[in-house]
């Protein structure tokens, strides 16, 4: 649910976690990102940095400049002053990502996990089954059927936490228990109701069933998209996964290594929450694509 009043929770001597609700709901993410912007615009010296996520905002503050009780009061008044999320309209880039679904690399990774850690059904079959889909082919259709909203970045530099904008593509899945010790770079997976792209080979807990050859972070900044940051995305961007074959994956990967790849980014659109909400009521959210 969306809480009537935000819940303020302490994190040691210098963090405050503000919980806005306990469900995955775009309105909550708009509020979390809106609050982060409001804090930045208020120019509060006592706030060192913030980290918005799906339904919460972590505030890192300087306890020499503000006490915990005063900070909570300041945050409550900023939240109260936030306009309705319906009024939010923000520039939103759309990234098209060539994506090899049901790819051999994540399949091999799951097989390795099954052999060495604990036996497990192939993630694509498992996620399809628990979501009532006919099988991996429908999973590909459903997962690639929506644009994804970059709700926040975190866990690893540049890793995007994603939500499908089309509720007909919404899927849920438990996280691995225990987590994987490795995941191929560029893997796309999901856990809870969120999807993510793994920027580099890291451990992980999401169910995995696709891979992209296009880098989402680049310490060497070889491509113009990384001019201002080594992380490709920022909150409010959107991603569309475009299914591709293994052959296409290999071709694009070669272009990436040669430095000749061109990112497919649409930069002329704005995201209007009001228009999005108006569209939402016109569709049958329970009907799979």
């Amino acid at each position: 649910m969306i809480y009537d009043k935000p819940v303020f929770k302490p994190g040691g001597d210098r963090y405050l976690l503000i919980e806005l609700g306990d469900e995955l709901n775009l309105a909550l993410n708009f509020t979390a990102n809106g609050l982060a912007d409001a804090i930045a615009q208020a120019g509060m010296k006592a706030v060192v940095e913030t980290a918005p996520c799906f339904a919460s905002l972590l505030v890192h503050y300087d306890p020499d400049l503000i006490g915990f009780a005063d900070l909570k009061r300041e945050m409550a008044s900023l939240i109260a002053a936030l306009g309705p999320s319906d009024d939010i309209e923000l520039p939103s880039r759309l990234f098209y990502f060539p994506t090899c679904y049901l790819d051999p690399w994540t399949k091999a990774c799951v097989e390795d996990y099954s052999a060495k850690i604990t036996p497990k059904k192939w993630d694509a079959e498992y996620v399809a089954e628990i979501n009532g889909l006919s099988g991996p082919a429908q999973l590909v259709r459903v997962h690639s059927g929506s644009e994804y909203w970059v709700a926040s970045l975190g866990f690893w530099p540049g890793l995007p936490f994603l939500m499908p904008l089309d509720p007909r593509s919404r899927l849920t899945a438990p996280k691995y228990n225990p987590p994987r010790t490795w995941t191929p770079q560029g893997t796309i997976g999901m856990g809870g109701a969120a999807s993510a792209i793994y920027p580099v080979a890291t451990p992980g807990g999401y169910q995995i069933f696709a891979r992209t050859p296009v880098p989402i972070w680049d310490t060497k900044r070889r491509f113009p998209e990384f001019e201002n940051s080594i992380c490709l995305f920022r909150p409010g961007d959107r991603i569309k996964f475009v299914p591709c074959s293994v052959e296409e994956f290999n071709e694009i990967e070669a272009e990436v290594s040669a430095g000749t790849y061109t990112y497919n980014v649409v930069g002329y659109q704005k995201f209007s929450v009001r228009q999005y909400n108006e569209w939402l009521v016109t569709i049958d959210a329970g009907k799979r694509l």
């Binding site: 469900e23 996520c53 799906f54 339904a55 919460s56 890192h60």
Partner: peptide, 9 residues
């Protein structure tokens, strides 16, 4: 649901 972690958590 994924959320921000305090350092030292």
């Amino acid at each position: 649901i994924d959320h921000g972690y305090p350092l030292g958590a």
